[in-house]
């Protein structure tokens, strides 16, 4: 970064990022799968881990949809201990902050996972995943209810001093109520959206396509849904919002930032183009230069300020 160029640095609670582009959980594995692209991210949010190993859902796990991807992975992961032992040391060497993502089946499990992860060296922050739509227990069941969401985040909060990011689901009536609840329970930031619940049916075989029947939709198809929710939540809470959902290029990312996101996540786009995040970073910088902004912070929520000004 040129010293004269605009600053892309941003703080998510105590988590300092050199740029605002995160790898969304589940889309960059544990980091090393994209080792040579990893240093370009502001941070990598690792794939969510559970207390024990999970094999994941039966295949098929993927369906391509119009401008989107429906998945039913089912939190396949080697378990938190194997993550710390086998994955984190390599991830730590990538030269980028690693955010561990945890998924429990009970509030107490979120506490245990947060405590376990906090003992390790090299975890910069914890994402509390209360929004996975593809598991029978835990996951989204926490994220759809403000009290349950608060219980999970509260248990993690009691177990760690690391910055806590609550990952929210869009599959709710009032996302702001959930956002307020997790902030009250101690979340330092929220990230949204996780995938939109959906399904696909095979007309020839007359049965659901996905082995898990239902899945979560990601990709460009969900961007307008995500943008609205980021807009709403950024108004509802006084903590940083990490916006994600269908971001493919810098223009998409800037829209989320203008809606109030302090940082953004790139997910499905990485599958298509491992260099997508790097192009997003470069494009945000170019946007700031063109706008004459000295810092990313100058444009966070700018579209909302425009609306406020119009009202006045």
């Amino acid at each position: 970064m040129s010293a004269a160029g605009p600053s892309l640095e941003v703080d998510i609670g105590a988590l300092h990022l050199k740029n605002p582009v995160l790898a969304a959980s589940g889309t960059a594995g544990f980091g090393r799968e994209y080792a040579h692209f990893a240093p370009l991210f502001g941070a990598i949010v690792a794939k969510s881990v559970t207390l024990g190993p999970r094999a994941g859902n039966p295949p098929p796990r993927l369906v391509e949809t119009a401008c989107g991807l429906l998945n039913s992975i089912g939190l396949e992961n080697p378990g938190v201990e194997a993550f710390l032992r086998d994955e984190l040391p390599a991830a730590r060497g990538l030269g980028v902050p690693i955010v561990a993502s945890i998924a429990g089946e009970t509030a107490a499990e979120y506490g245990e996972l947060a405590r376990t992860v906090s003992r390790a060296d090299g975890v910069a922050a914890i994402e509390v995943n209360i929004s996975c739509p593809n598991v029978a227990r835990g996951g989204m069941l926490f994220g759809v209810d403000p009290a349950q969401a608060a219980a999970a985040v509260g248990a993690a909060r009691a177990a760690t001093r690391l910055p806590l990011i609550a990952k929210l689901t869009p599959n709710v009536t009032d996302v702001c109520a959930v956002a307020r609840a997790v902030v009250d329970a101690g979340a330092d930031a929220v990230a949204l959206i996780n995938t939109v619940a959906g399904m696909a049916i095979d007309a020839e075989r007359r049965r659901p396509v996905l082995g898990g029947v239902f899945g979560g939709l990601s990709g460009p198809a969900i961007k307008p849904i995500a943008l609205r929710m980021v807009w709403l939540v950024a108004e509802a809470i006084d903590r940083p919002v990490i916006g994600m959902g269908g971001i493919c290029d810098a223009r998409d990312a800037v829209e989320f930032i203008l809606a109030g996101a302090a940082a953004v996540g790139v997910g499905t786009a990485t599958f298509v183009d491992p260099g997508a995040a790097a192009r997003v970073v470069d494009g945000i910088r170019a946007y700031l230069v063109e706008a004459g902004a000295r810092s990313l912070r100058d444009i966070i929520g700018a579209a909302r300020r425009w609306r406020d000004a119009a009202r006045a």
Partner: peptide, 22 residues
């Protein structure tokens, strides 16, 4: 062959049952 998203081992989308399991 299987449907894939990432192709590089990140997404875990192209799971295939191992013998005697699943």
């Amino acid at each position: 062959e299987a449907h894939m998203a990432c192709g590089v081992g990140a997404c875990r989308g192209c799971a295939w049952p191992a013998p005697g399991a699943g």
